[in-house]
Amino acid sequence: MSRGQNSGGLMSSAGLVRYFDAEDRNAIRIDPKTVVAFGVLFGFAVLVLNAIGI
């Protein structure tokens, strides 16, 4: 890559960061603890179903 050439990587990603960082009042908000609890319960359910042979 030559010295005079700018790849534009930082500039092109700046718009995406600004887009995804914006707060939306209509967005669904889920507490991270709820997501973790659901994952643990789902994993436990899979283990139980595997144990009983379904």
Results as ranks from 00 to 15, higher is better:
Val36Lys: 10
Ser7Ile: 14
Asn26His: 09
Leu47Trp: 09
Gly39Ala: 13
Ile52Pro: 04
Phe38Asp: 07
Asp21Glu: 05
Phe44Ser: 08
Val48Gln: 06
Asn50Gln: 15
Val48Gly: 04
Leu41Arg: 02
Tyr19Val: 07
Ala22Asp: 04
Val40Met: 10
Ala27His: 05
Ser2Val: 13
Ile54Ala: 07
Ile30Tyr: 00
Ser2Leu: 15
Gly53Cys: 07
Arg25Lys: 12
Gly4Arg: 13
Phe44Lys: 01
Gly53Ser: 08
Met11Gly: 05
Leu47Cys: 10
Ile54Thr: 12
Ala22Thr: 02
Ser13Ala: 12
Gly39Asp: 12
Ala14Trp: 03
Ala27Thr: 02
Ala37Arg: 13
Arg18Gly: 02
Phe38Met: 10
Phe42Gln: 06
Gly4Ile: 03
Ile52Arg: 06
Gln5Arg: 14
Arg3Val: 11
Gln5Ser: 12
Gly53Arg: 09
Ile30Lys: 03
Phe44Gly: 09
Asp21His: 03
Arg3Cys: 09
Gly15Pro: 01
Gly4Tyr: 10
Asn26Met: 10
Asp31Lys: 10
Leu41Trp: 04
Leu10Ala: 07
Phe38Glu: 10
Gly9Asp: 02
Asn6Ser: 13
Lys33Ile: 02
Arg3Phe: 15
Leu47Lys: 08
Lys33Tyr: 08
Met1Arg: 14
Gly53Asp: 07
Ile54Trp: 09
Ala27Lys: 09
Phe20Lys: 00
Val17Trp: 01
Ala45Phe: 14
Asn26Asp: 13
Ala37Ser: 12
Thr34Met: 12
Ala51Glu: 07
Gly53His: 09
Gly15Ala: 04
Asp21Ile: 01
Arg29Trp: 02
Pro32Glu: 01
Glu23Ser: 11
Ala45Pro: 01
Ser7Trp: 05
Gly39Glu: 12
Phe42Cys: 11
Leu49Cys: 11
Thr34Tyr: 04
Leu10Asp: 06
Gly39Cys: 12
Lys33Phe: 03
Ile28Lys: 14
Val48His: 04
Asp24Thr: 11
Ala45Asp: 03
Ile30Leu: 12
Phe20His: 03
Val35Gly: 08
Leu49Arg: 11
Phe20Pro: 00
Ile54Tyr: 08
Leu16His: 07
Ser7Cys: 11
Val46Tyr: 04
Tyr19Ile: 08
Ile28Gln: 15
Met1Cys: 11
Gly39Arg: 09
Val17Pro: 01
Ser7Leu: 14
Leu10Cys: 03
Ala51Cys: 02
Phe44Asp: 00
Asn26Gly: 07
Ser7His: 11
Gln5Ile: 15
Gln5Pro: 03
Phe44Asn: 05
Phe42Ile: 11
Leu16Thr: 09
Asn50Ile: 09
